[in-house]
Design a protein around this nucleic acid. Sequence first.
DNA 1: GCTATAGTTAGCTTCATGGCTAACCAATCG
DNA 2: CGATTGGTTAGCCATGAAGCTAACTATAGC
Lengths: 129, 129
Amino acid sequence: MANQSSRLDQIFAALADPTRRAVVMRLCAGEASVGELADPFDMALPSFMKHVHALEASGLVLSEKSGRVRTCRLRPDALVGAEDWFQQLRAVWEARLDRFEAYVMKLKKEKERAGAKRPSRTTKRKGSE
Amino acid sequence: MANQSSRLDQIFAALADPTRRAVVMRLCAGEASVGELADPFDMALPSFMKHVHALEASGLVLSEKSGRVRTCRLRPDALVGAEDWFQQLRAVWEARLDRFEAYVMKLKKEKERAGAKRPSRTTKRKGSE
DNA sequence: GCTATAGTTAGCTTCATGGCTAACCAATCG
DNA sequence: CGATTGGTTAGCCATGAAGCTAACTATAGC
């Protein structure tokens, strides 16, 4: 769990940089060497390598060295972790809407019941737009 | 565009912290005061406020102060930016698969034709696996 | 009006990040 | 073999992030 969380930390942190996002995009189209990846960026190689390392540490990218060239490729399954988080968020959001709907229903019922008894002051609603 | 990019930077950076992710989750269920939000965390208020500020700067959260209590609520549309990025990524990915498929088709055709003629050296392709 | 509550401001540490240069392997290629 | 190419290591610097305490402001409640 704590590990899970720090994995997400790393993934999101990795994506919080335009260079690294661009690299991910690029790798999405197919594997490439470090040199090829670094080419579009105006940056010294060692600096660029740090980005590659960050991506690798996050699990988003995998690299292998053969001869003197290191080839990187995307690990699409790592992205699932992040997307899952959004999914989970969406679930909570939906639940919220459901709850709101349920709340409205409850209000309606109360109103009906009140109609039979006495027109009481509408309870001040709060907390959901 | 550059602005767009830095917005994404902020969003992903905001999500790259367990505390802030938890806050987002929490707010997803409904709005809450800073105090309520801070309660579960073992952290001084000023420290926590920084997180709230980060979330607000990223556009994920909106807060309003009324009286002495500041109420925060989620801005679901801000999340769309991040999800869109994944969407875009997915599109590139699909394109890649298509291209791969097309490539395989091309190979097949060449093979067939080669059966009639002779297997000529394939031009060295580069950059797309 | 005093006190407790809810945030806020200011200022300080510490550590991580993102960039650089310079020097250093280790494969290729001529 | 010697030079080039492709990465790597090491070390430096500036900035920013994440935490803290202490002191302050402003509302709410009694």
